[in-house]
Design a protein around this nucleic acid. Structure first.
Lengths: 115, 115
DNA sequence: TACTATATTCGTCGAATATCGAACATCAAC
DNA sequence: GTTGATGTTCGATATTCGACGAATATAGTA
């Protein structure tokens, strides 16, 4: 965990292209979708088939895009979605995650493919 | 215009990360937003401050992501949004474009920031 | 045919990204 | 203090991205 605190950008500084880019990676999209489906969790919760350092890198991308926040929990580090992202870009996460999961796994998102 | 026809992927082959990546560039986002606000148009309609070859490159990215289609019109090449993208990823474009344009320029999209 | 307008393709460049392994930092437990 | 668990940072490498200029292709016009 390196330093004491994590660097989180002010939600107002986050740009839309930045967020879209963060979501344009399959693994990061999977992480965000997983977080939406449940609460905060440690790194191990995402059965990512990549090295720990790679996963750490993707987490930083998500964090710097204002999508997630990290919190220390003993020796682990819990991740969770940043609620403010909904205020900053209303409906975006709901739409993207719903489309990612497909029609069968919808969770009350903004758009609902019927075919 | 190179060859007679343009290469357009089948809409079913387009993936969500691919589309999000195509939208994660400011210029491409601007192009898509402009196209949504009006009909088909030539390259010159987007007052892009980049070289023609660069613009052509971005057009190809958008085309390969299934977002736009190109059509020959004499010596020009008209671009327009692919309607099928709405079937493939319902609500995505509306949400993203609305968020890109901001609260003041809303055009009946999915989400409407009020602050 | 030659010339112009418009867009594409090619080759190249520098910057950013993705990935890994190794070393390091932090906390909890022994 | 040592050890183990959990992430982070660093260095190296390979790939992708965005940009440009130059050369090319096509349609229309002189």
């Amino acid at each position: 965990m390196a330093q004491d605190g994590y660097e989180h950008p002010a939600i107002g500084d986050v740009t839309l292209p930045e967020v879209l880019h963060a979501l344009s990676d399959p693994l990061r999209l999977h992480i965000v979708a997983t977080l939406r489906a449940g609460g905060p969790r440690g790194w191990g919760a995402f059965d990512a088939q990549v090295a720990a350092s790679t996963l750490s890198h993707h987490m930083k991308v998500l964090r710097m895009a204002g999508l997630v926040c990290n919190r220390r929990d003993g020796t682990r580090c819990l991740v969770s979605l940043r609620p403010e992202i909904e205020t900053r870009f209303p409906g975006l996460l709901a739409t993207v995650v719903a489309l990612h999961q497909g029609p069968g796994t919808s969770q009350g998102a903004a758009a609902m493919p019927k075919a």
